[in-house]
Design a binder for these strands. Structure first.
Lengths: 149, 149
DNA sequence: CAAATATAATTGATATATCAATTAAAAATA
DNA sequence: TATTTTTAATTGATATATCAATTATATTTG
């Protein structure tokens, strides 16, 4: 009875879980702010905490590649959440500045974002959360070392 | 020291882990068969085990929505992995048949797919895998019940 | 049976993911 | 310093995700 899912592995549950979490989180966020995605929220939060980050650094923080982050930030600039200014000392980079609208949006959404996380983890003890993180990290490292060689 | 990741939750590790797994799996699969994606492989496997499944049933099995599965199968039909025939008794549905090329591809890829999974879970005991699955399922159910209401 | 409702699949619009190629600028090195 | 190599960001191509609207067909119900 352990493996009833199609491919017989926990990796299926992993896939399904993150998908449901994303759906749930997006639904809650959309109900407060209509023109923002979960990923765009994360970019705002990262930049809020680390105003000096380049696109590349933001990308690494949320596991996106450079191409994805370019497009995500393009959209955020269009929607006036962020502005791009050329970096003073390294002209390959940008300074990314959160706009007033961006700041207001963060304030509006932070409670929701935090609630999404606690809701997702409801019923798990502190120990279980730590354990989950450890087990996931093992899998993560396996995959990383595997495809980096 | 528990949470060093940007948003301070295990959900980040979850996101990162599934992304690395997908990358690793795609890389290994691409090295054997060049014109197929991980998701397309899954469709082949599902149909192989359940030849009578409709698109909708395949979709549910791998957590895709109808729109996604329509497009995935479109591509697979174009690449001659699958053929669509109208269902005899319910003309809203299709019978999806794996082609000869599809069957050969499955045979070629199954060892790789299985190796990907065991590699990803290397170093985890049976108990740990069961535990991981249980913890993930708790999160999954939290998210589902949350956004289904 | 006819009308209303439900279901399977498709399509359009928009966002993200991935890979490869490109550009511009910075850093390293001969 | 001139040349080579790296790095940051962009762009193009293709695949997938999500939502909403639509089409065609089945099923239910009045």
């Amino acid at each position: 009875m352990k493996n009833t899912n199609p491919t017989g592995t926990v990796l299926y549950t992993l896939e399904q879980t993150i998908k449901e979490y994303r759906k749930m989180a997006q639904k809650k966020i959309s109900s407060i702010v209509h023109d923002i995605t979960v990923d765009q929220c994360l970019v705002l939060i990262i930049l809020h905490k680390n105003p000096q980050y380049s696109q590349k650094e933001v990308a690494e923080m949320i596991f996106k590649d450079n191409a994805s982050i370019t497009r995500i930030i393009d959209l955020m600039v269009k929607k006036d959440y962020i502005s791009r200014k050329i970096h003073e000392t390294d002209r390959r980079k940008f300074n990314l500045e959160i706009t007033q609208k961006g700041i207001e949006t963060i304030a509006l959404l932070i409670p929701t974002i935090q609630k999404n996380r606690t809701d997702a983890l409801a019923g798990l003890s502190e120990n279980e959360i730590v354990l989950l993180d450890q087990l996931l990290t093992k899998v993560l490292i396996n995959c990383k070392t595997d495809h980096e060689k």
